[in-house]
Write a protein that binds this DNA or RNA. Structure first.
Lengths: 217, 217
DNA sequence: TATTTGTGGATACACCGTACGGTAGCGAAC
DNA sequence: GTTCGCTACCGTACGGTGTATCCACAAATA
């Protein structure tokens, strides 16, 4: 049972899911596979190439959604699939936007969203398509990074109010009590209970409407 | 002339500007300051706390733009200042969205943008403000990461067509020649010459319009 | 003067990515 | 049938990282 890029990527993903990207090392992957560390270099030239490999495996899952009934449904489906993937593999969000995603599956999802967007009214020529795609991807990347970051801090501080006050509280409440950040203070105190999925969907639609030039409801 | 968080941060920023975040290590910073590596731990508990420090120094520069004549001008100015900062300190974009930015200056720019956005029509209550802020920040984070990544690959491959074809070409052109990614192919071939700043501004306005509910022109 | 206290430094540990040299097997050429 | 060369595997070793711990020395206190 020799070894293969697929097996290496799968093991790496398992480890990254469990211990994050910082807890991932070539040596641990090798140990997980019962092999010396240098074996991996027969299949991968770099650590970063390994990361690219992992990323493209995730994109493969995202690409499965394929085309939907209309361009709008397609874009929404791909965006939501990306979010699902990021929630399942938090390290994925760490890599989002950090390097060009050029793997075959990444290109495939790029193709479906680009093709879908090009069907939209308000996207008339190729420059507009490029811009629209940029804006959409920028939003997705930023939104997912933000959501994952929040989820991580929520998990590390504990989700309940008391633990939050105990961990970030001392510093943050002191900061907010200076009165220099009244709006932020109101946001932190009054508005922490938004549903993440709803927020993502809502903002996604907002951005999409902005891009494709549709009147807001 | 003892040592201080400010001095450490300044040295770290110099090094990160020159050699990127990967080329940054506590030992190098210490050497730069003519000190043993362990001295830094008297001022900073962690490497990550050092990164937070650096980030907040950058936010200090961003915060300098302050309020403008209207809420819209303020939001635009802050966003553009953030972009300028990211262009000057590319490592900043690597950190964007990756951890909560809670330093005093980061909170200050959060406050100004939040306060500005809350003045916008279409942002009626606090939940809408939270969502709007999320969408705006998501876009900024994603757009800057993307732009910096592109700039980096452009720099490493060389900017001219020939060098590009030589480096990414072998793989990418082969991929595009499969015919499976026609839209992406068109984008790569026909549409690479958009001005980055214009694109950012254009998309920023688009997103902002989407958020605040303004009719598209 | 004796003793405590704190401050800068060196050393050490566990771990990382990866360069390098060696070895064993196997097909091809004489 | 023997030898040669090539490929696929393997372990070791190097230079680097973040950080914990201990240590020496100077200053300040009793």
């Amino acid at each position: 049972m020799p070894l293969s890029r697929e097996k290496i990527a799968a093991a790496a993903i398992r480890l990254a899911d469990a211990h994050g990207l910082d807890g991932l090392s070539l040596r641990k992957i090798a140990k997980e596979l019962g092999v010396g560390p240098m074996r991996l270099y027969d299949y991968v030239t770099n650590r970063s190439e390994l990361l690219d490999l992992m990323v493209d495996v995730v994109y493969a899952r995202i690409a499965e959604v394929g085309q939907q009934s209309g361009w709008r449904a397609t874009v929404l489906a791909v965006a939501r699939a990306t979010r699902d993937a990021a929630l399942d593999h938090e390290w994925f969000s760490d890599l989002l936007g950090g390097r060009p995603h050029l793997g075959p599956h990444a290109l495939a999802v790029g193709e479906t969203t680009a093709a879908a967007l090009s069907q939209s009214p308000g996207v008339r020529d190729i420059d507009e398509l490029q811009r629209a795609l940029g804006a959409l991807n920028a939003f997705i990347v930023g939104a997912l990074r933000r959501e994952i970051t929040e989820r991580r801090t929520a998990r590390s501080t504990g989700t309940d109010e008391a633990a939050f006050q105990a961990s970030l509280g001392p510093y943050l409440t002191r900061m907010l009590n200076t009165g220099r950040y009244p709006t932020v203070a109101r946001l932190v105190i009054d508005g922490a209970h938004l549903n993440a999925e709803e927020t993502f969907n809502h903002n996604l639609i907002t951005v999409l409407d902005g891009i494709t030039g549709r009147p807001r409801t």
